[in-house]
Amino acid sequence: MSGKLMAAVSAAVLLWAVPALADGELHIYNWGDYTNPKLIEKFEKQYNVKVTLDDYDSNETMLSKVRAGNSGYDIVVPSDYTVKIMIEEGLLEKTEPNAMPNGKNIDPRFLNIYWDSGRHYTAPWQFGTTAFSVNTDKFKGDINTLAILFNPPDELKGQINVLDDVNTVMHAAERYAGVPRCGADKASLKKINDILMAAKPSWKTFSYDTITKITSGDVIVTEQWNGAAYRSRQKIPAIKYAYPKEGIEGWMDNVAVLKGAKNLENAKLFQDFVMAPENAALISEYAGYDNGIAGSHKFLPAEFANSPEISPPAGSPTPEFVPPCPPDVVEIYNKIWTNLRK
């Protein structure tokens, strides 16, 4: 009797476990909390493809899983400098998104970029800036300076989250110190090291979970991306995104197809799919960043497109897109980073 019961239970489990029938599959590996479920649903319906979605929290995590080989993913969404690395390493499939039907929609500003000039490998996903946000209910002073992160006033000490991202933090420190990006010059590296060591006691956490950290009241200041700042402000209106006078980092995430992807055709379909303006708008609507596809703004609420996070106020610094640093500088960065967090 119990044998029958077991058989029935396992049969039920197996039935439930069989995936719904579809023409094909597509395995996407994207940043966490970044993909609009509606976008995936729409793609699944339109092409009858079963999509699985997993997330990572840094380019480095994604890269290490992909480099390990045979990861099983078809699509990844690396940031600018990571795209450059991946192309150099031969990790990406040359899918010519620029020649795809929707390739004509690529905003000319994002066509001949340093990481994929002419868009032979990647389609735009979203772009934005990295600075920091402050809960202005709890801090009233001037926020448009990197001193908030690196030499904070007393009331902000111990109330700061910085991104657990060596490049972002290093580049921010370089801007604060007024030295060039990726500089191998010993004197400037020493200067940066000193700034970081002095700032560290004021930092409460190193984390990517910026929205949670600032909206739960765990911190008053968090290093953040503009779209995340927009979403934080939807929860707590007093959260303000800063445009530090020392400079601001720009970035762009891009849809790329991994070399040897099992579902190559579906992956290409997906690249084309995300370049349609109404679909790009779906991406932006969810994650809160601009997308680099011309004509998508008319599908977005004006309130979003005109928000201070998306359209910087006049006089704000121009976003700087930083290419990957040379390996010897990366090595020194990593040493400074470990030393900082020992």
Binding site: S58, T61, L63, S64, N334, R341
Partner: peptide
Amino acid sequence: GGVHLMIGDLIAQQFGSGRN
């Protein structure tokens, strides 16, 4: 909160962002 690393984080980190 990731401020001070411990052995477990440190090891996992080398396989992720540490790339070593």
